[in-house]
Design a protein around this nucleic acid. Structure first.
Lengths: 155, 155
DNA sequence: CCTACACCGTGAAGTCACTTCACGATAGCA
DNA sequence: TGCTATCGTGAAGTGACTTCACGGTGTAGG
C-alpha cells in the first residue's frame, strides 16, 4: 500500500473508532439517565471544583447560554447545585452534590473498566507506541483546529 | 505508570482525538454548507451507488424517519435526487447528482489531505503500528457495542 | 461620587440530528 | 383474495447547540 493510502487507512480507523466510541458512551450513559454533554460538564467539574458557568462555557468550548441549559438538566437530576459566588454577585458557582460526586466515582470506575477492555490485549510496548503516535497526531490536530477549548475527557 | 494508568491515558487520548476531529470535521464541512450527518449519508452513497432510504437507514444505524429528513436536506442542496425504484413502487432510490459527485471528489481529496497532515510525520513503521493497534481496539469495541451498523467514514 | 462600559446569566427564537408512533401505499405470500 | 410485512413520511417530542436582547452587577475614569 502506498504511504498515502496507509494514511487514509489510519484516518478511516480513527473515524470509525470515533463513531463506535461515541455510540458506546451515549448508550452506556443513557442507562444512567445521563447525556454526553451533561456528563462532560460534570466531568469537567470534577477536575476544577466549583466553577462559574462562564468558565465552564470556555472550558467546554460552547456558548454560555448552552451551559445554562446543561446545568439546568444536572440540577433537575440532583447532580449539581448552583451556589452564589462569594465575591461576584453576578456569577453562580456550579458544584457537584453528594450524589454527583458518587456518580463521578462510578463514571471513573467505568472509564477504567472500558480502558481495560479496549487496551488490555495490547502489550506494554504496543500500548506505549499507540499513545505516543496519538500524541503526535493530537499535536498536529491542535495546530489545525483554530483554537479548541481545553478538552477534558469523559468516560 | 501502572498498566492500568497507561490504558486510561490511551483512552483519554482517543477521546480527545474524537472531540477535536469531530470539531474539525463539523467546521470544515460547514464551510461547504454541509453538516456531518448529511455528508455521512452522501459518503455512504458513494460506496454503494443509488440506494434505498431503508438501506441507508440500516447502513448508518439510524431510523428510517431520520434518513427522510437528511435526504430532504441533500435534495434541497441539489446534491442528491430521489428516483423511483424500478421494481418496487414503495421505495425510492437516492442518487447523487452531478454536483453531488463533484462534491464527493472534493471531500475525498480533503480527506486525503487531512490524513497527510495528521499522519505525515509518522514513519512507516510507527504508522503501521498505529493502524494495527487501532484494529485490535476496534475489534474489541465492536464486540462491546450491541451490533453497530456498518460504519462508513466521512472526511 | 457617578457615569460609562464590560461582564454574568438567562428568556426568546431558531437550527439540526435524532426518536417513536401512526398511517397510506405497495409487495408478496397462502 | 385477503393477511401481513415493508417503504416512506406526517406529527410530535427531546437534546444540543446558536445568536440576540436584556436586566443585574462589577470596575474603572473623570
Amino acid at each position: 500500500m502506498t504511504d498515502d493510502g496507509s494514511r487514509v487507512t489510519a484516518l478511516d480507523r480513527v473515524l470509525e473508532l470515533t463513531v463506535l466510541l461515541g455510540r458506546d458512551m451515549a448508550t452506556s450513559l443513557a442507562a444512567s439517565g445521563l447525556t454526553v454533554a451533561r456528563t462532560t460538564l460534570l466531568w469537567q467539574l470534577r477536575a476544577t471544583g466549583p466553577t462559574t458557568q462562564r468558565a465552564l462555557a470556555d472550558a467546554l468550548g460552547v456558548s454560555a447560554r448552552n451551559v445554562t441549559g446543561l446545568v439546568d438538566g444536572l440540577v433537575a437530576a440532583g447532580l449539581v447545585s448552583r451556589e452564589q459566588h462569594p465575591a461576584d454577585r453576578r456569577a453562580t458557582l456550579v458544584t457537584p452534590t453528594a450524589r454527583g460526586e458518587e456518580l463521578l466515582d462510578e463514571l471513573g470506575r467505568g472509564q477504567a473498566e472500558l480502558a481495560g477492555q479496549l487496551f488490555g490485549g495490547l502489550s506494554g510496548e504496543r500500548l506505549e507506541g499507540l499513545v505516543s503516535a496519538l500524541d503526535d497526531v493530537l499535536e498536529r490536530l491542535r495546530a489545525l483546529v483554530p483554537h479548541g477549548a481545553a478538552v477534558e475527557e469523559a468516560p
